[in-house]
Amino acid sequence: MSIDATDRRIIAATSCGLPLVSAPYAEVAGWLGLTEGEVLDRVGAMQASGVIRRVALAPNHYALGMTANGMSVWDVDDAIVDDLGPQIGALDFVSHCYRRPRALPDWPYNLFAMLHGTTRDEVEEKRTKVAALLGPACRGHDILYSTRILKKTGMRLTGKG
């Protein structure tokens, strides 16, 4: 879907969230000099096309006690990785799950799943669950724990169409 300059203004105005009022889209419309109906139509269209995944609350998983996480990586048979991937992605402790290319011989893994838990032991338990789900299609796996955040910036979005 192509988004236009007005969509980008709506995105920029809501990228930190919606105003917490009974009619938030009307308030956004007021900021931007649009009508509520126009904002609703555009947000609805962006949701239908996948630019917006959903309109929801974003929990701070650290604040809620899920302070441990690890990037688990799996070497899964290419013939069935796209069938197994959705099962891993649907697990409620997996926040991100992607198929990515291997970098042989350095890196044999083609499935990445970020696992979350309250402790590292719990993350390891969840890793065992993923291993059980993948079964013999998985030839090897590892998990990489972060030891330091070196940089973290928000999503940059220019106003350019």
Binding site: G17, Q47, S49, R53, R54, V55, A58, N60, M155
Partner: peptide, 15 residues
């Protein structure tokens, strides 16, 4: 700080 935000989740790639 229990939540970071409430609003649209944008797919940066789709944009």
């Amino acid at each position: 700080g229990a939540i970071t935000r409430f609003g649209p989740f944008y797919d940066a790639e789709a944009m």
